[in-house]
Design a protein around this nucleic acid. Structure first.
Length: 269
DNA sequence: ATGGTCGATCTTCGA
C-alpha cells in the first residue's frame, strides 16, 4: 500500500480553511500535519476539516499563535501529548496509526513546530533563540531515547540544514534558521534519532529545495529567495519505502497564501 | 540603505 503524509505550516487554519480543502483535493494525502493553526482549541474548525474526508483529527492550540493538528483518513491507535521546555506551548503532537491503516498500522507520526527563534542569533541576547536551541536539544535527547517503532517525523522545524536548502548559504550563515549552531543541532538530533531526511534521501544536493518564501518579498517567485524549513523524516527502517517527497510550491502562489508550501512524502509499504 | 508583509489581537507581538 501507499502512505502519503503531508506537512504544512498553514499560518491560521481558520483564515485558510478553503486552502486546506484545496491542498487536500490536489495532494490527497492519508495524513495531514498542520502547524501554526493559531487557534484556541475550542475555536478549531473540526467538522469543516472532517468534511474534507478526514474523520480522525487531533489538535492542540492556543490563542493567537502556535497550534498543531493531525488529520487522518485512518483512526489512531494512540495519541501522545508531550510538553517541551517545560512550557504549555502547542508545538507538538504524535499519533500511532491503528490497525485500520493496513500495512501502515503501528507507524508513529510526529508533528513538530520548532520555535522560529527571533532575529538575533545569540542566546545570550535573545531569549527566543535560547528557547529554540533548548527545544532542539530536548528533541535530541528525546530522539536518542524514542521507542523504535517505525516513525515519520514531520513539521516546520524552522531550520534549513544544508547549503542548498537556502538561496545563499554565505549570506544566511548569520541569519536565524541557517546558523551553524542550529544546523548542527538539527543534524545531530536527526542522526541521534536514526532518521533519514526524506527530501535529501531522494533529491541530494546540489539541487536547491525550498519550502518557505517570505511574505516580505512582493516578487517572491522571481527572486526565489527561499529556504527549506519544512521537513519529512523517516526512521531508518522506513527509508527504503520512500518513493517521493514533493513540495507543493504552487500553493505559495494561491490568493492569500501561507508563506509555507505543503511537503508530502509518499511511502510504499 | 536594517528594509519589507502577514495574522491575531486589548495598536503590539510573533513570524
Amino acid at each position: 500500500m501507499q502512505l502519503k503524509v503531508t506537512t504544512w505550516n498553514i499560518n491560521s487554519v481558520r483564515l485558510r480553511l478553503d486552502k486546506v480543502g484545496r491542498a487536500l483535493d490536489e495532494i490527497s494525502p492519508d495524513v495531514l500535519c498542520l502547524q501554526e493553526t493559531k487557534c484556541p482549541e475550542d475555536c478549531f474548525p473540526l467538522s469543516a476539516l472532517q468534511q474534507f474526508g478526514y474523520p480522525h483529527v487531533v489538535q492542540v492550540g492556543q490563542k493567537g499563535y502556535n497550534g498543531v493538528a493531525i488529520l487522518s483518513r485512518f483512526p489512531f491507535e494512540s495519541v501522545e501529548p508531550r510538553r517541551w521546555c517545560e512550557r504549555e506551548d502547542a508545538r507538538h503532537l504524535s499519533v500511532v496509526l491503528g490497525s485500520e491503516a493496513g500495512a501502515a498500522a503501528g507507524i508513529a507520526i510526529h508533528n513538530f513546530y520548532v520555535p522560529a527563534g527571533g532575529d538575533v542569533p545569540d542566546p545570550a541576547l535573545n531569549g527566543k533563540f535560547e528557547h529554540k536551541l533548548r527545544f532542539l536539544a530536548e528533541m535530541r535527547r528525546w530522539a536518542g531515547q524514542r521507542d523504535r517503532r517505525p516513525t515519520v517525523l514531520v513539521g516546520d522545524l524552522n531550520v534549513a540544514p544544508l547549503e542548498h536548502d537556502v538561496w545563499s548559504h554565505k549570506q544566511l550563515l548569520k541569519v536565524v534558521s541557517h546558523t551553524p549552531v542550529e544546523t548542527e543541532a538539527l543534524e545531530s538530533l536527526r542522526q541521534e534519532g536514526r532518521f533519514v531526511d526524506g527530501a535529501r534521501h531522494l533529491v541530494p544536493e546540489p539541487t536547491k529545495i525550498y519550502t518557505w518564501w517570505s511574505y516580505r518579498s512582493p516578487d517572491w517567485a522571481t527572486a526565489n529567495k527561499g529556504r527549506r524549513l519544512d521537513h519529512v523524516w523517516a526512521s531508518e527502517d522506513l527509508a527504503g519505502t520512500l518513493r517521493a517527497v514533493d513540495v507543493h510550491g504552487c500553493a505559495r502562489g494561491w490568493p492569500q497564501p501561507s508563506d509555507h508550501a505543503p511537503v508530502t512524502a509518499t511511502l510504499v509499504l
